[in-house]
Write a protein that binds this DNA or RNA. Structure first.
Lengths: 213, 213
DNA sequence: GGTCTCATGTAAATAGTTACATGATTTC
DNA sequence: GAAATCATGTAACTATTTACATGAGACC
């Protein structure tokens, strides 16, 4: 039985490479440039560290997806400027058309709230309040960035796509704010009624079984 | 200058351990039990594989956070049943009170949409439609689970906390549905006006610079 | 006869972060 | 004089997934 192995085409199931190829799709850049550019553009939904970026660039060069040119400078380190090759462009565009893989979920806030019955209610309230404040500030950032983009890049062919990603952030933050308010109200009422939530008692086993999926 | 190293207390910045300790906080369980129990309860926001779980349990035992008892069975493998020690309970509750660390964000869908100008609009539309369908089915799952919980665990002290995590999922899915509809409308209009989006042209450099944070 | 559940684990590979290392120049 | 910016990288570590390995009994 033929097994279709995931590592068929050169290994690396990671998507970091595509964030790099994407950054280079708007013109040649050094590693340093890529870091700055991605922080400013896709930073809200994709983070990359230097420790990952620099080795990745070398690898992409070995694979022929980018080419390198060294630019010497006076008084500061050489810049190694990378440019997408045709193969790189092709690979990037191919990836763009492939279906999005479902990611592994890990939400620390929810894990803490799920077990909130084991600590004083104030603890859960604090978690939610801090989260709420963060969402509020994010929402503000998204709004300002969207306004700036609409001003500075009016008429740009790519503008709608950039606004789409900001819209995601906006909708998300708004929903999170609603949820925080719901949740704070619930926690408030627990605090008012069951005044015995001091987290001293061990919990008997009655973990809920949830539905399929 | 004293540096406060992150690996001060025995290494492991990972939170997997707490998902395990949490599962054991409702009673002793085997590795197999933990997997089933967490899939059913915290599965929507925390995933763990056997390959991580079994070594983790050994480690937690070495650290004295759990104790082990072997239960022999006829005809099937022994069960190794783990129970929280006092130290384990203490460590878990301490963690519950600690502030939630901001996680690294990585959203493949948004990365693909951000560069949507490089492929035919239909490609982006497909991505969004598939995502939309998933949200719809998730929303349905959350609703059914919430109804089931309210029926089967009515009056339970912990019920509100479980519902809080489901409420998060519900709000999130609802927001995502709104965003999908916004986005599909935008993509529709791009398709109608700029009929030249076939991804053939290279893009000049005009990556937007976004605001702070 | 096949597949699912029960039940444990290991090995290999991969991915990715953090901290370290270096050093000139510019800005406060 | 300190700190930030420019600019590159490596080493160590940690975490985590996937695939492999084993095998009985229950269910269809």
């Amino acid at each position: 039985m033929l097994r279709r192995d995931k590592s068929q085409d050169g290994g690396s199931r990671s998507k970091s490479r595509f964030s790099v190829l994407g950054a280079l799709s708007s013109g040649p850049k050094s590693g340093y440039d890529i870091k700055k550019a991605t922080e400013a553009s896709t930073g809200h939904f994709w983070a990359e560290s230097y420790g990952n970026l620099y080795p990745l660039l070398k690898r992409l060069e070995r694979e022929g997806l980018v080419s390198r040119r060294t630019v010497t400078q006076a008084g500061r380190p050489d810049r190694r400027v990378y440019r997408l090759t045709e193969a790189g462009t092709r690979e990037f565009r191919e990836w763009l058309t492939e279906a999005v893989e479902p990611a592994v979920v890990r939400n620390e806030l929810l894990l803490k709230l799920f077990y909130g019955g084991q600590v004083p209610t104030e603890v859960s309230q604090e978690h939610v309040k801090r989260f709420r404040a963060r969402q509020l500030s994010l929402l503000d950032t998204y709004r300002r960035v969207a306004a700036w983009l609409e001003r500075e890049h009016a008429g740009d062919r790519e503008l709608p796509f950039w606004l789409i990603t900001l819209g995601y952030g906006r909708r998300h933050a708004e929903a999170m704010l609603s949820w925080c308010d719901d949740t704070l109200a619930v926690l408030e009422s627990i605090d008012a009624t069951g005044r015995a939530t001091d987290g001293a008692r061990p919990t008997p086993d009655r973990t809920p079984r949830e539905g399929a999926e």
